[in-house]
Structure formats: C-alpha cells, structure tokens
C-alpha cells in the first residue's frame, strides 16, 4: 500500500466524504451596466466518491461553478455546502487544480509537491516519503529537482496532479486539466488520470469541453446550460471500466449518450450565438435610429 493510501485507510471517517450541494445559487460578476449574471437558481449535487464531470459551452460558468465550490468566490444568493456545512473559503480538502498550469515557477518539482505539507507545518523528514511516493506514482521521481519551466506541458499537469494528490483531499476540483495539450498527450493523460483515480478514488469535479473526454472519464455527466448556468441534463455513465477511446468507439450505449449530449450542447452553444446576433441586431437598430 502506498504511503498516502495508508494515511487514508487510517482515517476515521468511514462514509465517503466530499458531498457538495449547490442550492439555488446565483452569481453575478461586475456592477451596473457591466453586471453579468453567470449563475441563476442553479441547484446541483456532487455525489461523494464519484467522478462528476461537468461539461458546457465555453463561457457558460464552469470555472465559476468550481470557484464557488472551492470557496474563492461566494454566491450572491443560495448556498454552497460541503458535507452539510457552508463553504466559507478555500480549504485544502477541496482542492482546485487550475485551468492552465499554476505551478510555482520558483520552486522545484519537489518543492511544489511538498508545498501543502510544509504549509501545514509538517517536518521535512515526514514529507520526504510522501512526496517520493506521489512523484513515483505520476512517474516524475527523476525530475524532482527540475523547475516547472523545464518540463513539458504533460509533465507539468502531472506535477499539478501530484501536488494535489499528496494532500489526499476529499474533493478534487479539476478545471479543464488537459486543455492545451496535444491530442496524443491528452489521450495519455486521460488514461493516466483514470489509473491514478482507480488506485485512490475520491470525489472529483472534472470540468471539460470535450465530450469524448467527458464520457471516457465520467461516472456522472452534468451538462450545463448556456449562461446563466443551470443543470441542463444529467446522465449516469454506467459504462464498464476500464474504458478506452477504442472500446467506447464501438460501444452503442456510449455512442447514444454522446449523440444526445452533443445535441444538447449544440443547442446550448447556439443560444449564445443567437444571443450575440440579437445583441448586434439591436445595436444596429439603435445606431440606425440615432442617425
């Protein structure tokens, strides 16, 4: 058993931690004429111990949803609760992995991974075996003295996963973690992520814009509506594991889900286009009228 897994097993809490509830949440950014309502009356449950994948058109409020769960932002109305208690701010058991790499450039891979434990006041002799274990699990033990800038994009994402995993957080919030990677690396990272997850399941909220990635990874797929974000469609992905892109390609059930999801997503994405057209048309009408 790995060191982190041992630590986990010794935890007293038997029931899976990390249930997140959003109850009629609203969130508006900006004020006055610049105000933008990103979420309105959004209710949603993140089931504990499962891979909850959130997908939605770009700009629909996925990152906002994660920021509310992480506690970086507070809702304007409604409530966000984690295991029944309201979320008041960031905490290391609801860990956010950011959209683009947010590794600390000035720390080596090892220091990045050890950061949270050092911040928690643990001694270096305590930290070393845990960090070593986690780095081995993401296959980067040989790179521990490198700086993030010296690593490839895929390696950076793995360090980011390691930095999160060492905390053994009850909830992991992943905001498009593989965005920007080339297709090959992305595929490898997805496999990698699923293997890591199988060793060490927990509550995950995984945000993506790629439907294939979503179906490959999800236990539960949550499709958000166009902005303001609400749950538009929720489906249990009960496909057998391990899944690969190849097996899903041949799987009728997977293809049905995909087709239906794409339809919903397309419909939602079109709304923003239609909204834009309408806005433009009304602007043009105004300029024409003022002449």
């Amino acid at each position: 058993m790995s060191a982190v897994a041992e630590r986990r097993a010794s935890d007293q809490t038997a029931a899976p931690r990390g249930r997140i509830d959003l109850h009629r949440v609203a969130k508006t950014y900006g004020q006055g004429r610049l105000a933008k309502t990103v979420m309105e009356d959004c209710s949603l449950t993140i089931e504990p111990g499962r891979l909850n994948v959130v997908i939605g058109p770009s700009g629909c409020g996925k990152s906002t949803l994660l920021r509310l769960i992480a506690g970086f932002d507070q809702p304007d109305a409604g409530a966000v609760t984690a295991d029944g208690s309201p979320v008041r701010g960031p905490a290391s058991d609801r860990l956010m992995v950011f959209q683009e790499s947010a590794l600390f450039d000035w720390m080596t891979v090892y220091e990045n991974v050890a950061f949270a434990l050092r911040a928690a006041g643990r001694g270096s002799r305590d930290i070393a075996p845990l960090a070593k274990d986690v780095l081995e699990r993401v296959g980067l033990a040989a790179f521990k003295e490198k700086y993030p800038g010296q690593l490839s994009g895929g390696m950076q994402r793995r360090v980011e996963l390691a930095r999160a995993l060492i905390n053994d957080p009850a909830v992991m919030l992943l905001d498009e973690p593989f965005r920007g990677l080339d297709a090959m690396t992305r595929g490898l990272m997805q496999e990698y992520f699923l293997r890591l997850y199988a060793d060490n399941p927990r509550t995950v909220v995984f945000v993506t814009t790629e439907i294939d990635e979503a179906i490959l990874i999800a236990d539960r797929l949550i499709i958000l509506s166009n902005v303001p974000a609400r749950v538009r469609w929720l489906v249990e992905i009960d496909l057998p594991r391990p899944r690969t892109v190849a097996t899903l390609y041949e799987d009728d059930r997977a293809n049905d889900i995909k087709r239906e999801a794409i339809e919903v997503l397309h419909e939602e994405a079109m709304k923003s286009f239609r909204g834009a057209f309408r806005e433009r048309a009304s602007k043009e009408a105004v300029t024409a009228g003022s002449k």
Binding site: F72, S92, R94, A102, F115, A116, A119
Partner: peptide
C-alpha cells in the same frame, strides 16, 4: 503576480503569512 498562484496556495492550505 498571477492571482492563480495566490489562490492555488490558499487552496493548498497556505496561511496569509506563507
């Protein structure tokens, strides 16, 4: 400074001093 650095650190449990 990229605010995500500060947020990432806070998310990893760092105090204001850290």
């Amino acid at each position: 400074i990229d605010p995500r650095f500060v947020e990432a650190a806070r998310s990893l449990g760092a105090s204001r001093m850290t």
